[in-house]
Computed example of a mutant assay.
Amino acid sequence: MRNDLGNRLFNGISLLSIFMVLSLHGCGGGPEDTRPVRNSVSGVITYQGNPVEDAIIVFRPASSEGQTANGRTDATGAFKMGTFEGTDGVVPGEYTVMISKLEATSTSQALPEDDPNYDPNPTVEAPPKNLLPEKYANAETSGLTASVPEGEEVTDLKFELND
């Protein structure tokens, strides 16, 4: 009788252990995404009627709450926005928009101190120049806004920049 009770207890503990292991590891799914819901947002940026390549676009929440989103244009001026990673979309809400395109600059490499060309007092390089009118790089002066409705994709944004 004791042996039968021991077998039942052992089987019960074994089943409980298996259940706990499966509960801890889940059924193959990853961690639940607890970040705010995001909607796909895309559009086109032009300057004086021409597409703007490599422009950086930033959506800043119009209110104190919300998440900033950003994107970059391709050769056709098209962009897709992302909030947390890549082009994962934008949290619904109202946004002020900033757009800039920085001049490509060459980066100088720091030389080791034992290099004969080492300069202990290097000259400070100027920041890259914005190739678009400066007003568009500032949320307060750009005059650009975007609205992302809850549950809707926004695929037709057009920002036509001029001097």
Rank of each mutant, 00 (worst) to 15 (best):
E153I: 01
V148D: 05
L102F: 05
V97F: 06
S64H: 05
E85K: 09
R8M: 06
I45E: 14
L161H: 10
F19A: 15
N39W: 00
V154Q: 11
A62W: 05
N70V: 00
T76A: 15
D119K: 11
N162Q: 14
S147Y: 11
N121G: 02
M81R: 00
N50Q: 15
K135Y: 03
A75C: 02
K158D: 03
D163Y: 04
D88R: 07
E94V: 04
G26R: 07
G89C: 05
T105W: 07
Y118S: 09
G12N: 07
K101F: 00
L22E: 05
L111G: 00
M1P: 13
V44P: 05
K135R: 13
P133A: 06
P133E: 04
D33Y: 10
G143A: 06
G66W: 03
T141P: 02
G30H: 09
T96F: 14
P112W: 09
E150G: 04
E65Y: 09
L144N: 05
I56A: 12
H25A: 14
N50G: 07
E160L: 04
D54I: 11
G77M: 09
F159R: 10
D156I: 00
G89R: 04
D33W: 05
A139I: 08
T46D: 12
A126Q: 11
V154D: 02
P120H: 04
E53V: 12
P31N: 11
G93T: 06
S106E: 14
I13N: 04
L9N: 07
D156T: 14
Q109A: 08
I45F: 11
E53C: 04
G143H: 11
P127W: 06
E152M: 07
V91N: 02
E150F: 09
P133Y: 02
L102C: 04
T107Y: 12
S64D: 13
P120V: 07
E113L: 06
T155N: 15
V97Y: 04
G77E: 04
E65N: 02
T34K: 15
E113W: 06
K101A: 10
F84I: 01
T76Y: 04
G151T: 07
G26Y: 13
E140N: 13
A137I: 01
I13C: 08
D163Q: 12
H25Y: 14
A62T: 02
G29D: 12
E160C: 00
E153R: 12
A62V: 08
A75L: 06
T46L: 03
T141Y: 11
P112K: 01
D115T: 00
D33P: 03
G82Y: 10
Y95I: 00
E103F: 00
V52D: 05
I57D: 00
E150W: 04
F84D: 02
E140W: 07
D114W: 15
